[in-house]
Design a protein around this nucleic acid. Sequence first.
DNA 1: ACCTGAACACCGTTCAAGT
DNA 2: ACCTGAACACCGTTCAAGT
Lengths: 190, 190
Amino acid sequence: MLDRDGFERFSLRRLAEHLGVTPMAVYNHISGKEALLRAVAEHVVAGAKYRAVRGDWRAAVRDCFRTLRRTCLAHPGAVPLIESAEALPPSIFRPMEITLTALEGAGLSSRDALRAYFLLTTFTLGQVSYQIRGWGRGVDPGSALRDDRLERDAFPAVVQAVSSRPWDFDASFEFGLAVIIAGLGAQRRE
Amino acid sequence: MLDRDGFERFSLRRLAEHLGVTPMAVYNHISGKEALLRAVAEHVVAGAKYRAVRGDWRAAVRDCFRTLRRTCLAHPGAVPLIESAEALPPSIFRPMEITLTALEGAGLSSRDALRAYFLLTTFTLGQVSYQIRGWGRGVDPGSALRDDRLERDAFPAVVQAVSSRPWDFDASFEFGLAVIIAGLGAQRRE
DNA sequence: ACCTGAACACCGTTCAAGT
DNA sequence: ACCTGAACACCGTTCAAGT
């Protein structure tokens, strides 16, 4: 229901109707709406299969966040729940463990490795979030600037860049990941 | 009210009560809740003052996203609105214009410059979002793993890293920004 | 031009009652 | 153990009526 109708449209009463049952029957199985949505988020997060990547830290980090991204994109309706979750199952720390181990092994300090993980995870989830809600809504300058001559003149580079469509989210994510890994490599050398 | 009570607690009826007026009076000034929240998001976004940074692209990009971050952090209650906004005022494209101009001037292709902007903006807004909701809730392994011996053994690097508290969001953001800019410098050289 | 009161269609949730 | 029906406290929104 979340993937089909979206997060905003979901309600316990609609769920009950979908199950052919009275709204209150749900409370025999779960303590409330919040607990139900948290359980969904936990289920999606727990479903991620992180491979044990041997070899260099770059491959390990790349594989790890590609997996995280793929897991999230498989359940777009659950992404808002994951982002706003107050508690998630231990498997959410797998990418963190992998990243910290890889980067500390590569010579980064414990503190920088943690910051690098924070960088990678906000980037990855941010890209997923924008992709799901559509890089159109609110951020697509194409629709916002299309007819407005005055605004177009104020943002020439934006107008020029937007003509190079369609947008490739996969390629954009890979670009960002490559940039971050290159930057971490530079950080490591210092 | 948004900054004080948070996004979830806000309702038109509470707003009306706060104004000492009937809930329906609001509709004489705005078409509905969605429009009101959008107007708030637009106001916050429009309030960002981006400086014209001359000199190298690194300084321009750094200053630009520092300003975006500071603007968002000044109104934590509005950040969810900005992230979920369907349309935002033209000033949301100022960072995009600045970034594209700076990076294309530095030799990146138009497509890569756009991807770099996407990287920078998802990173910046992601960091802000986590900071606002508290890098504790859901992502802080300290609370999730504290008492659980079994889980602690499964994530040694996480447990070790978390002891280096307290977390410095400013420093973490600066670290990420530096890594991205270093990575873009490497990308530029190819 | 702005506000009010009553009403409607939705919510999540509680509680007593059923089987 | 699980479901139901009625009810409560909240929503956003419409509409006719007031000044």
